[in-house]
Design a protein around this nucleic acid. Structure first.
Lengths: 128, 128
DNA sequence: TTTTGATAGTCTATTTTGTAGACCTATGGC
DNA sequence: GCCATAGGTCTACAAAATAGACTATCAAAA
């Protein structure tokens, strides 16, 4: 989580900085859901399904801070809030789509690997 | 973390499954470090810098399970263990590189967004 | 009139994760 | 004999995520 706990005096490494942001379990999923039209808070909650309100809230706030999404509050009752991708956010979806395509193409290989996996023999570690 | 807690009877969604795997704070960094030559456990530990032994161990084990890396134990003393990318792992670096390139290109925009960000006014929420 | 419902969150108690650091094996060097 | 090394594991503690209650406001249902 710290962008760099270890000897880092200059600006944070861009790669590390960005990976830390998107590599947090939910951001990618949220960005993915935001594709196309803007979404409301509860819509995202339902679409993603197994995210908690708190995490969705935090994730959106961070994405907003970092300029990936905008948050628009309509002063209605009950209140309506819409989240939409910014240009930066949209541009991010391009490389991310490559990743999603890779996932689709290689999911089978992963599942197969999981099945044929046998845990390593670390007998030199465990005195028996 | 669950691949799908909510109504999911069929096979897990490939996207979700893969994103869950790589979206875990360390996997991407580890794969990135593994680029080029194989690495030993402590090399990775030093290169990444702020990962704990336990998390590196867990991450590598999962990457191995999923067929992204191989683990080779040389029966020497002290023991030597080398981690290397499989073909699957290498192929994953292609889309990931796109992402890294995006990160480099857009890091400035993100930093800028962070600076100009002002927290939302949720006064309708908080009675004062 | 009181109740219910909807929205977008926040707050809190509990569970899950991650961290730091001690510890384990065997051997070689001093 | 004692320390160092490599690759982990184990444990006690700290940090983070979860579920569910709770907030406000107004409209419609009962």
């Amino acid at each position: 989580m710290p962008l760099s706990k270890s000897l880092n005096f200059e600006q944070p490494c861009p790669i590390r900085d960005v990976l830390d942001r998107i590599g947090d379990q939910w951001s990618l999923l949220v960005l993915h859901s935001l594709q196309g039209e803007p979404r409301r808070f509860n819509e995202l909650l339902r679409e993603i399904g197994d995210i908690s309100k708190q995490m969705l809230s935090k994730t959106l706030k961070r994405l907003e801070q970092d300029g990936f999404v905008t948050r628009t509050l309509y002063a209605e009752v009950p209140p309506r809030v819409e989240y939409a991708l910014t240009e930066l956010g949209s541009s991010f979806l391009v490389p991310m789509q490559q990743l999603v395509d890779w996932a689709k193409a290689n999911h089978g290989g992963i599942v197969e690997a999981r099945q044929t996996y046998t845990p390593a023999d670390n007998s030199w570690q465990q005195p028996r």
